[in-house]
Amino acid sequence: MRTTSEPIALARMSRAKVGMASLIFMESAFFAAFLVTYLYYIGKSTSGPQPIECLDRGPVLFNSACLIASSFTVVLAVRALARGAIGLFRVWLLVTVLLGFEFLAGTAIEWSGLVTAKGLTIQSNAFGTTYYSLVGFHAFHVIVGLLMLVGILVLSMFGCIDPRRDHARVDVATWYWHFVDVVWIFVFLLVYVVGRVPQGGGL
């Protein structure tokens, strides 16, 4: 008789990690639908403001740099937490949150410029429709991520974050932030690089 009838203890995976990975997978499908829709409508707008007239890459590059930098700062924060350096953790987390707010503020400024100066609204044309919905839903996710990070920051201010106990949890929460960043790279490439075609260009 073989000994396989002896039960094997399974290497336990973290529920939180699997759950967060599933959530990110699901959100990716959601964004994929919006990205594909954006791609589908590139160059289809025959009237109204066009991407090439509206989208100014300069400020967006700066905002993007902030958002991507925030991914690194959050890593530094988690590392600090792993070492037990709670003060450093708070600093890096604060920097992350500020960078995130900068990104949101940048988006808000860009949008108000688009609406007032260029007259581009969600009703203008297919470009307006897809642009505001895609960038808007990304911004919405940035807000959700920021709420998470701010929540952690506030908790740590009140001393509720214990490095040993909560390190893994905080780590998992930051996954979401990384995801929001990665999605932005796709959005940026699609909207500000691929999608900035002359009128009627299309793919």
Binding site: M26, F30, S133
Partner: peptide, 29 residues
């Protein structure tokens, strides 16, 4: 994989219906 795509499509439809977006409106592109 599938349900978020429906949710996204329904979001677009909702934007069409409530904010005047043009995702599925053949009259305007």
């Amino acid at each position: 994989v599938a349900v978020p795509v429906l949710t996204a499509a329904q979001t677009m439809l909702l934007l069409d219906r409530s904010l005047g977006a043009h995702f599925f409106d053949p009259e305007t592109e």
